[in-house]
Design a binder for these strands. Structure first.
Lengths: 236, 236
DNA sequence: GCCCGATGTTTGTTATAACAAATTACATAC
DNA sequence: GTATGTAATTTGTTATAACAAACATCGGGC
């Protein structure tokens, strides 16, 4: 999704190009989206301070839209405010990671169960993502595997056809973004069959219970590499 | 409302109470909170336009913090942007209401199951809220009953001890705020025993399954009065 | 009556400046 | 060396202004 909307109109569309939806993206929204993908890709380390004016200078915009973008991510808990009011990349606590996993168990499980209504083509696309993941595992390209794993889960979630649930789950993934690059620090799990495969098979057979259970197992048993990068539960 | 800020631990605080943290609330945060309680109380009707400058004049602040407050609520989907970019109170679609109920079933159910760890005093407080609700039903004070019902669900949710889940559920309730005043349009359900009572009893007996089931039934069977105030599903 | 165009107003967006509080730098005293 | 006090800078916050686009108002013409 890099450079999703170019400013210059492109040529060679089938539809008459004058009916193309006009995307009038504000500066604050563009900064928001760029920061969010940076977070999701693990390009922002925990405890990094995002100071307002240096940031707006880097983005080439003024302080007002920059502040809007930062505060929006703060409101989504993808970023946080320290005691001074500065925006920082938050460091996840153990409690929070466990809670996020529990919530994902419920929501992604429900989405997977609802996703049995997907078309064969949609399930094929999901399988294609998993095939790429397997390739990355084989070639030890873990950085790409992490992003593909995220894409797999979010794609599955979207197949559930529940937009509100999907947005919630996406927020949870963004919150985990800064530590997500350590997903495979424990090595590649060698479960057989891989939970992703069980999910895909369950979808193909229209077995909603199996799909839900497979997702839950994937969430509960996976991600052990993350625990080394969370704070101990904050006092209390 | 008594549930405004995150309640400090009432008991067992070591520091003297005069060292309580100084809350330095910014103008935008104050406006945000006031707008949110207005939404949750149903004081803002769907399709109401919240224009920037008139709003900031009403709040006695400038456009910048007012815009931050409005955009924050937009980011939470408690408000929306129309085609012009104006902030409006969104009108819930049937799909969305059903989806929110499904998500609440999962999350509030999990919170209720976790809430069996609550103290007797906490459960007493929950029961006190339900007693007030019963009183309001008897005296036909539906406006207050609606707010108390919200407070019951959110209090139960908070007892689950899962802050992230609690925040998500609260967002879902805020999104329903504008139509929540019609909760009893169908009349007062006369289930016996009331699901709230089954929840309380289950918590007292430490029966997490029963607590979860009771909450789910409360969500699934209740709120029928809301359906008359949602849009038909948008094209699809 | 309706339609159409000019024109003021209001809208959202962005940039900039003013302000206080916090932080840093640095010189001075011990 | 450490400690301290002061000036300079940077921070977040808020207000205000400039701008274009959308909207509303109010004409005249039919």
């Amino acid at each position: 999704m890099s450079s999703a909307s170019a400013s210059e109109p492109e040529t060679g569309e089938i539809l008459p190009d004058w009916v193309r939806p006009i995307v009038k993206e504000s500066l604050s929204e563009r900064a928001y989206r760029e920061l969010r993908v940076a977070l999701m890709r693990g390009q922002l380390r925990p405890d990094t301070r995002l100071r307002l004016r240096p940031m707006s200078a880097r983005f080439g915009i003024s302080a007002t839209p920059m502040r809007e973008a930062l505060l929006r991510l703060v409101s989504e808990k993808a970023l946080a405010l320290d005691a001074r009011g500065s925006v920082v990349v938050p460091r996840l606590a153990l409690d929070q990671l466990l809670e996020i996993r529990a919530i994902r168990t419920d929501l992604e499980g429900r989405a997977a169960a609802a996703a049995i209504a997907s078309t064969a083509a949609e399930i094929d696309a999901l399988e294609a993502i998993h095939a790429q993941i397997s390739q990355c595992h084989a070639s030890r390209d873990f950085a790409r595997a992490v992003n593909l794993n995220t894409e797999f889960h979010l794609s599955l979630c979207r197949l559930g056809g529940m937009p509100i649930l999907y947005e919630i789950v996406k927020l949870l993934w963004v919150r985990c973004g800064p530590i997500l690059s350590h997903l495979y620090d424990d090595g590649v799990p060698d479960w057989e069959p891989h939970p992703h495969r069980r999910i895909i098979d369950a979808l193909r057979h229209g077995d909603s219970d199996a799909a839900r259970d497979a997702v839950r197992e994937d969430i509960e048993r996976g991600g052990s590499g993350l625990f080394a990068h969370v704070r101990a539960s904050p006092a209390g």
